[in-house]
């Protein structure tokens, strides 16, 4: 049963990573516009618009 000593912290650690990711998403405003994000993923304009196309992720945070 010694395997538990390794497996349990591993499971807990993975869970904590998930929780951390959730908090990060919240803080960076990933949940502010769920409808928009669903459509945004389908846009393929970054190729033509070049570096000025839309706003980068970090700008979005500042605005969110």
């Amino acid at each position: 049963m010694n395997i538990i000593v390794i497996l349990f912290p591993l499971a807990l650690g993975l869970g904590l990573v998930g929780l951390g990711a959730f908090f990060w998403c919240m803080r960076s405003g990933q949940y502010t516009d769920l409808d928009g994000a669903a459509w945004r993923v389908l846009q393929d304009d970054d190729a033509q618009a070049g570096p000025r196309g839309g706003v980068s992720g970090s700008d979005g945070n500042a605005l969110g």
Partner: peptide, 22 residues
């Protein structure tokens, strides 16, 4: 959303525009 963000991005003075669809 695309029309607004793309259209505003073409204006050189505008740094960024982001639409919230909700």
């Amino acid at each position: 959303m695309q029309a607004i963000e793309g259209g505003l991005a073409r204006e050189p003075a505008i740094v960024g525009a982001r639409v919230n669809l909700v």
